[in-house]
Amino acid sequence: MLGADIPQIIGWFVSIGLTGIGILVLLIRVLLSQFEKRLDQRFNQVEKATEEIAKLDYKLMQLKSELPERYVMRDDYVRGQTVLEAKMDALYYRMTGGPAADWNSRAGEQQEKTNERN
């Protein structure tokens, strides 16, 4: 009686063991497929981010190329204004007889005031 039960018991253990191994293999496959899906999602996110970075890089390069055409540096503006003011001063001095005439008239006024005090 016990001799006939041993092969049956061994059969049960083998079938339970194979069932357990089958369940483990199934769980491992399911976990791996979920892991692969998550990796694919992350790679897609990285690709999208890379495309966005490339677009931003292109826009930045465009901005850098357009800046000299749209804006003037402070030093260049000051230099240009200085040139314009010098030209306007030269025109004024030509019209009024030069800076010496203007200076002499001021000096003459100072001399008259000094003479009046004395």
Score class of each variant (00 low, 15 high):
Met1Asp: 04
Gly3Arg: 04
Gly3His: 01
Ala4Glu: 02
Asp5Trp: 14
Asp5Tyr: 10
Ile6Pro: 12
Pro7Ala: 13
Ile9Pro: 12
Ile10Pro: 14
Phe13Pro: 00
Val14Asp: 14
Val14Pro: 10
Ser15Asn: 08
Ile16Arg: 12
Ile16Thr: 04
Gly17Ile: 00
Thr19Pro: 15
Gly20Arg: 01
Gly20His: 01
Ile21Cys: 15
Ile21Ala: 15
Ile21Leu: 15
Ile21Val: 15
Gly22Thr: 07
Gly22Tyr: 14
Leu24Asn: 10
Leu24Val: 13
Leu26Ser: 12
Leu26Cys: 07
Leu27Glu: 00
Ile28Val: 04
Leu31Pro: 05
Leu32Pro: 10
Gln34Ile: 00
Gln34Met: 02
Phe35Glu: 03
Arg38Asn: 08
Leu39His: 06
Leu39Glu: 04
Arg42Ser: 06
Arg42Gly: 01
Phe43Asp: 12
Gln45Ala: 09
Gln45Trp: 00
Glu47Ser: 13
Ala49His: 05
Thr50Tyr: 15
Ile53Tyr: 05
Ile53Ala: 13
Lys55Thr: 01
Leu56Tyr: 13
Tyr58Val: 02
Tyr58Met: 11
Lys59Ser: 03
Lys59Arg: 12
Gln62Gly: 09
Leu63Phe: 09
Pro68Gly: 07
Glu69Gln: 13
Glu69Leu: 15
Glu69Met: 11
Arg70His: 02
Tyr71Arg: 06
Tyr71Cys: 05
Val72Gln: 03
Val72Ser: 03
Tyr77Cys: 04
Gly80Asp: 05
Gln81Gly: 14
Gln81Pro: 08
Thr82Trp: 09
Val83Phe: 10
Leu84Arg: 11
Glu85Gly: 09
Glu85Ile: 07
Asp89Thr: 02
Asp89Val: 01
Ala90Phe: 08
Leu91Ala: 15
Tyr93Gly: 08
Arg94Pro: 01
Met95Gln: 07
Thr96His: 02
Thr96Cys: 03
Gly97Tyr: 04
Gly98Ala: 02
Pro99Asn: 06
Pro99Phe: 08
Pro99Arg: 14
Ala100Lys: 12
Trp103Asn: 03
Asn104Trp: 00
Ala107Asn: 08
Ala107Ser: 08
Gly108Ala: 03
Gln111Trp: 04
Gln111Pro: 09
Glu112Tyr: 04
Asn115Gly: 03
Glu116Asp: 14
Asn118Asp: 11
Asn118Thr: 05
Asn118Lys: 10
